[in-house]
Simulated scan of single mutants.
Amino acid sequence: MQVLRPITANDFAALKQIAVESGHGFTSLPVDDNLLQEKIERAERSFAKDINKPQDETYLFVLEDSKTGDVIGTTAIEAAVGMSVPLYHYHQGKTVHHSPTLNVYNTVDILSMCNDYTGCSEICTLFLREQNRKGLTGRFLSRSRFLFMAQHSERFADTIIAEMRGVSDEDGHSPFWQWLQEHFFSIEFPQADHLVGLGDKVFISELMPKYPIYANLLSKKAQAVIGKVHEKTKPALKLLEKEGFEHRGYVDLFDAGPTVEAKLGNIRSVRESQVCPISIGELAHINEQSSDTLAICNQGVNDFRATFTKHAHYNHAKHTLIVSQEVADALKLKQGDAARFFRL
Rank of each mutant, 00 (worst) to 15 (best):
I204R: 04
C114K: 01
Q181L: 06
I278P: 01
A157C: 05
V202P: 00
G244I: 07
Q2Y: 13
L111M: 11
L63T: 10
K234M: 14
Y250M: 10
V85L: 07
F146T: 15
R155W: 11
K134W: 02
N287M: 07
L321Q: 09
A13V: 08
D65I: 15
R155T: 13
L331A: 08
S168Q: 15
K39F: 06
E231L: 15
E130S: 03
M83S: 09
V270K: 01
K67W: 07
I123R: 06
L294Y: 05
A317N: 11
N132L: 07
T118N: 04
F254W: 09
N216R: 09
L128Y: 01
S142M: 02
D32E: 08
A157M: 00
L136A: 12
K242R: 11
H152R: 00
L111E: 03
S84K: 13
Y250C: 13
Y90M: 15
M149H: 03
L218E: 06
F61Y: 08
E38R: 13
A192I: 10
E170V: 12
G336F: 02
A256C: 03
L237W: 03
A295P: 01
H173Q: 11
A215P: 00
F156V: 13
V62E: 03
G281T: 15
I204L: 10
L15D: 05
Y90H: 11
H311C: 12
Q2H: 14
E231S: 15
H98M: 13
L283C: 07
L195R: 05
D200E: 14
D65N: 15
P258V: 09
D292S: 14
N132M: 11
L240E: 08
E326K: 05
V3P: 01
L36S: 12
N106G: 07
Q274G: 05
A162N: 06
L128R: 00
A14Q: 12
E154I: 14
L126K: 06
Q37S: 15
Q131W: 04
F308E: 06
S174D: 04
E241H: 04
H316I: 14
R155D: 11
H311G: 04
H183I: 13
V251W: 02
E44F: 01
L195C: 07
T68I: 14
T68D: 06
V62Q: 04
D193A: 03
K232Q: 07
F148E: 08
A80F: 13
Q2W: 11
H97C: 11
K310A: 05
L207I: 10
D56Y: 04
V251N: 00
G138D: 03
I267T: 05
Q181I: 14
I161Y: 02
V270E: 00
I110D: 02
K238W: 06
L344V: 09
M113Q: 13
E188L: 04
G93F: 10
H152F: 07
E154T: 15
V104C: 05
F245G: 09
A338F: 12
S290V: 12
W179C: 08
A306D: 00
Q55G: 05
P209W: 11
N298T: 12
I160Q: 07
